[in-house]
Design a protein around this nucleic acid. Sequence first.
DNA 1: AATGGTCGCAACCGCTCAATA
DNA 2: ATATTGAGCGGTTGCGACCAT
Length: 333
Amino acid sequence: MGRAPCCDKTSVKRGPWSPEEDELLRSYVHNHGTGGNWIALPHKAGLNRCGKSCRLRWLNYLRPDIKHGGYTEQEDRIICSLYNSIGSRWSIIASKLPGRTDNDVKNYWNTKLKKKAMAMHQHQQEYYNNHHHGSGGRGRRGAGAGAATPQRQCASMHPSSASASAASSAVTTASAGDAAACSFGGGAMYSSPPPALQAHQAAAVLARYDGGAATTAATLPAPPPPQQQQQAASFADFSPAPPPPPPAGAINGWAGSLAIDDMFLPELLGVGDFPPGDLFATGFAPLLQDRASSLQELAACYFPNAQASAEMWAAADHVKPLPPPAGLCHSLT
DNA sequence: AATGGTCGCAACCGCTCAATA
DNA sequence: ATATTGAGCGGTTGCGACCAT
C-alpha cells in the first residue's frame, strides 16, 4: 500500500515558479520561518503549491546564501573525492560546500564533473598502461597520475557506488560510468582485494552501509549471488591492471587502501597533500597508521553500527578499532 | 533562417526514515 | 507495538537555451 500523496496534485500549481510566487514564499519564510511544517506553509503563505515544492524551491533556490554555478577547482576536488568516498550522498557532499545545495551538486556532477572525471580517468589509464603495466611499480599513488599529474580529480575509487548496488538493493546506485569516472586507477584496489577480505566480502564491506541495513564483513560468510559477482567483476574491468602487492611492512589490508589518496581526506583531516610517490612504501607507514585512525573515524560516520565498524576495522591488519567517533561525523552529517 | 540535437538546470517523483499519536 | 505523517533524500524528467548543420 503506497502512502497517501502529500497534496492534491490536481489542484496545485506545478512547473516553474513565477517571480510573484518566489516573492510570496520568500517573504513568508522571512517573516515567519518555515514553522517546521512545509505541508501547511503554502496555504498560510497564500501559495497554490505543494508543500514539497515550496520546500524544494526555498532550499534550492530562494535561500539567501545559495551560490549558483561557478564551481571552483577545489570544489570539484571535494565533490569528486567525497563521491569517491561515500557515493551519491549529495546532501552530505553539499554540506561540505558552503552555499551549495544537494540538487545543485548532483546536477553539476551529472552534467559536467562526471564527464571531466571520465576524461581524467581515460588519461590516467593511458598513462598507466604506458608507464606501469608490467613495470613493477608498486603503489597506486606512484602509479597512474601520481604527483606529476596536474589534475588529480578522482584519485581512487572507493567502490561505494558500484559495489553498493552489488551488495545492497537498499542503497542507491551509480552507473558504471560513474565508477569509471572516479576509479582513476583505483579500480585495481577493488579488483585486487587484500588478503584479509575475499572479493565478495570486500564488496560488501566497502558497500555503503545504510543504518539498520548495515551488514558486517563478519556476518558475510557466504559469497554473493552470481549477479553481484558479475557486477563486481564489471567494475573491476575498469582497472587497467592489478597492482602488485605492497612491500612487506607497509600498511596493507584494505584499510590502507581505503581511498586513502583522496584529496578530500587531507583537507578534511587538516593535513597537507599526501607526499608524492608510493604511499605503500615503508617510509610512510607511520603516517598511514595515523591517517588510518582518522579514516576509521570517517568510515564510522557511514557505518553507524559501531560494532560492525569495529569488526570491519578489525578485519584490516595493523589497524586498531577506535571508539565511536565524535567531531568528524558532526561535520559530515 | 530553419531545424534537429545536445546540454544544463529546475522541478517532480517516489522512496526511506524518524517522530508521534 | 503499530499506523500515520511529514521531512528529507536521491533519481529522473521536462523544458528552455544553446549550438551545429
